[in-house]
Design a protein around this nucleic acid. Structure first.
Lengths: 215, 215
DNA sequence: TAGATTGTTAATCGATTAACAATC
DNA sequence: TAGATTGTTAATCGATTAACAATC
C-alpha cells in the first residue's frame, strides 16, 4: 500500500464502501466481483481492481473479492475505525443538518462542540450539544483538543473562523461556506461548495434546453 | 467557445465566480489578473487564462481581465441568468437546509415544490413552500414541468424517488443520499455525497496522527 | 522603452483504458 | 477442461505545467 493515497482514489473508495453497505443490506453474496462493483458505482472495473490492489486487497480469479474483507479494509484505510473529535462553527440550518447527520458516528467522527456568534442561537440544542458562544472557541480548543473543524457560517465570516480553528490546532477543515479558504499546507481543507454542484447542474439544464430548441 | 465544457473546467468556473463576488464586496479594482485569481482560488494562473479563453474572454496584456466582464460571462456560461424550476424530495433537516439556501435564487433556481413521504411533515412550511405528500409527485410534475430534482431522502428510498423524478421528465438530479444513482444517459446526475468528504478528511486526520506518532 | 501580463505552443505528467496472460 | 475473473503491462488519452513569444 502506498504511503499516501491521492485525492482521486480517495473520492472513489467511499463509493465502493457505500455500494457494499447497500449490497449487504440487500443480502448480497459473500463474493463480489469488480464487475459488480463497477455496475453499482459507475467506475470502470479495471480501475476498481487497481484501487483495491492499491489498498492491499487480493481477489480470487473466477470468484471475485470477499465483500466483507473489502468493506473492512476500506473502513480501516479511510480511518472510519478511529474516533476523532470535531467542532462545528455555525448553528444555522445547514449546521443543524450537518450535526444531525446520522453517518457521522459511523464514519468515526464525534462532535464535541457547536459554536455560533449569534446570541439567539447560544443555548439551543444542536446535534445533541448545547450551542456555545463563538467567543469561547479558543478556550474550548485549549481544553479539548479537536482534529476537525466544520465551518457552516456565511462566506464573509468563514476565513476568520478558519484562522481561529487553525490557531487552535485542528488538522483539517471541512468548509461549507462558498469560498476557497487559505490555510497552511499542513492543514487539509475540503471546500464543500454547494454552488459548484448547482452551477454544474444549471449548466446541463441550460444545455438540455438548447438541445431541445435545436431539435 | 466549445460546444460543451467538461466536468473538470465546470468545477473551477464557480470558484472563479465566488472569488470575484467576494472581491467585489471588498472593493477590488476593475481589472483582475490571472495571477490574482490564482492566489484567491488555488488554481494555477496558466490554467485560469486557458479557462477564461475557453469561455470566450479576452484579457489585456499588462492590465488583466475586466472583473465585471469575467463575472458576467461566468454567469451566462454557467446558466445563472436563466430561471429553472426544481422540486425537492425529502423535507428532513438536510432538505430544510437546502430549501433555505440563500444562493439558490441567485444561481437561477426556483424551488417549485417540496415533497415528503412522512405524513407528519406534510403541511409544514419548508423553503417558503408547503410540504406535499410524495404520492402527489407525479401529478405535480405533469402539471408543472420541472427541470431539476433534488433528492434528500434516505439511501434506501433514493433510487425509487430518482426513477419517479426521471419518469416525470426532469433533466438533472442533485442527489444528497449516500449512494450512486443509476439513470439514463440523458439525465445528468450529481451525487453530492457527504461521506466522501468526511472519508477524505478522516483519512488525513489518520495520516496526521501517524505522522505525529513517527515524529 | 521596459516591464508586466496575456495567449499559445510544446513538454510533461499522470490517470484511464485496453489488452491479455495468469489463475483457480 | 473450459471459462470467468483477477492482476498487470502497455497504450492511450487528456489535463496540467512550463516556456516563451506577443502585446500593450
Amino acid at each position: 500500500m502506498p504511503r499516501r493515497l491521492n485525492g482521486i482514489i480517495l473520492e472513489r473508495l467511499p463509493k465502493y464502501y457505500n455500494f457494499l453497505q447497500e449490497r449487504e443490506r440487500r443480502g448480497g453474496a459473500a463474493a463480489v466481483s469488480s464487475h459488480e462493483i463497477a455496475a453499482g458505482t459507475g467506475v470502470d472495473d479495471t480501475q476498481i481492481r487497481k484501487d483495491l490492489a492499491a489498498i492491499g486487497l487480493k481477489g480470487c480469479p473466477r470468484v471475485g473479492f470477499s465483500a466483507r474483507e473489502v468493506a473492512t479494509c476500506l473502513r480501516r484505510v479511510l480511518g472510519f475505525e478511529q474516533r476523532y473529535a470535531a467542532v462545528l462553527v455555525g448553528a444555522g440550518r445547514l449546521g443543524g443538518a450537518l450535526a444531525a447527520y446520522p453517518g457521522f458516528q459511523e464514519l468515526g467522527l464525534t462532535l464535541s462542540g457547536v459554536f455560533d456568534v449569534d446570541e439567539r442561537k447560544v443555548g439551543l440544542a444542536v446535534g445533541g450539544l448545547m450551542v456555545k458562544p463563538l467567543a469561547e472557541l479558543e478556550e474550548f480548543l485549549r481544553r479539548f483538543p479537536v482534529e476537525l473543524g466544520i465551518i457552516a457560517v456565511p462566506a464573509i465570516a468563514a476565513q476568520d473562523v478558519a484562522d481561529r480553528l487553525i490557531e487552535g490546532g485542528v488538522a483539517a477543515l471541512w468548509n461549507f461556506a462558498p469560498l476557497t479558504l487559505t490555510a497552511p499546507a499542513a492543514v487539509r481543507v475540503r471546500n464543500e461548495c454547494l454552488s459548484i454542484g448547482l452551477a454544474e447542474l444549471g449548466y446541463y439544464v441550460k444545455c438540455a434546453r438548447e438541445d431541445r430548441a435545436r431539435a
